[in-house]
């Protein structure tokens, strides 16, 4: 009992001096962004998955280009594999795989914090919570955007060389080519943000990846179950199909325009992000 009351008296200088010497710190949005940026790059999994995404985009695109020349030169110009193909579609074929790597990394960025317990440190530092989600989304949008741009421009740059002189050959200056190749960046960026949002919403790496892969790969297949008259109306608004139309050189009658595709996919990303924000604010960490 006596020790309780006399303790501060024994050390009278300390309580006064400690607060006086304390520096002034403050949490700001940009500092949270910097913190999240440092967190992202200090994990080996980030580097590995980004490199994988790039390799997927490049390698599978170029293999597809090469396959095209093999079939064409083999004298099968009416083979369904090559009919109506163009250099953009062939070279960007790898995006189908790159999107999975990017989407999964997005899930890891948020759900990984829950599975490891890191989220407790994160939210203790930023107890207002939402700046963390916005920062992660912004950072990953930019990272995935750059990855997509680098991958797509490299894939088309090299790939158009491979198929030059064939019916599929396209030049940068051809109508729609630059737009289609460029849109690969925003496409991967939005898929990445969807991953970030799903990870934060479900708080589970397995769950986040499962839903992401399901929505991108399985749901389009399920459209077959709908009456034919509905299929075209519904399926063009799916994230995967809306995304496809962003970087397609030619639009089919039943696909959205590139701009509309971008808006629809962005809408899905915003919707997922809103759900993630709601859960982040409302439930215990």
């Amino acid at each position: 009992m006596t020790t309780t009351t006399t303790e501060p008296a024994i050390n009278p200088a300390a309580p006064a001096s400690a607060p006086a010497a304390r520096p002034v710190y403050k949490v700001t949005f940009w500092r949270v962004v910097r913190s999240e940026w440092a967190k992202f790059w200090s994990l080996r999994s980030s580097w590995i998955t980004l490199v994988l995404a790039l390799v997927f985009v490049l390698a599978f695109g170029l293999i597809r280009d090469w396959r095209y020349t093999v079939v064409i030169n083999g004298g099968h110009p009416h083979d369904p594999e090559v009919l109506g193909a163009n250099a953009v579609g062939l070279s960007l074929f790898g995006l189908n795989f790159g999107q999975l790597a990017i989407g999964i990394l997005g899930v890891l960025v948020t759900a990984g914090e829950y599975s490891t317990g890191m989220i407790r440190s994160t939210l203790a530092a930023v107890p207002r919570r939402l700046p963390v989600l916005w920062s992660k989304a912004v950072i990953f949008f930019v990272v995935a955007l750059l990855t997509g741009l680098v991958g797509a421009f490299a894939a088309f740059g090299i790939g158009s060389g491979i198929v030059s002189g064939t019916a599929a050959a396209r030049a940068w200056s051809d109508p729609g080519v630059l737009r289609a190749v460029f849109m690969a960046g925003p496409y991967l960026a939005l898929i990445g943000v969807c991953g970030v949002a799903l990870g934060a919403l479900l708080r589970s790496v397995a769950g986040g990846i499962g839903v992401l892969v399901g929505v991108l790969l399985l749901v389009p297949g399920l459209m077959e179950l709908l009456p034919t008259s509905w299929q075209n109306d519904v399926s063009q608004y799916l994230p995967s199909h809306a995304g496809d139309s962003m970087y397609a050189l030619h639009q089919d009658p039943h696909t959205l325009s590139a701009g509309a595709g971008f808006l629809v996919l962005a809408g899905w990303a915003v919707l997922a992000l809103a759900g993630a924000a709601y859960r982040l604010v409302r439930s215990d960490a």
Partner: peptide
């Protein structure tokens, strides 16, 4: 409960927390 990411080094863990406050 553990509140770290096992893949991150101690320095980077502390540094990323510090960055959020301008420490």
């Amino acid at each position: 409960a553990k509140s770290i990411h096992p893949g991150r080094s101690a320095f980077h863990h502390l540094n990323s927390l510090a960055l959020s406050h301008g420490i």
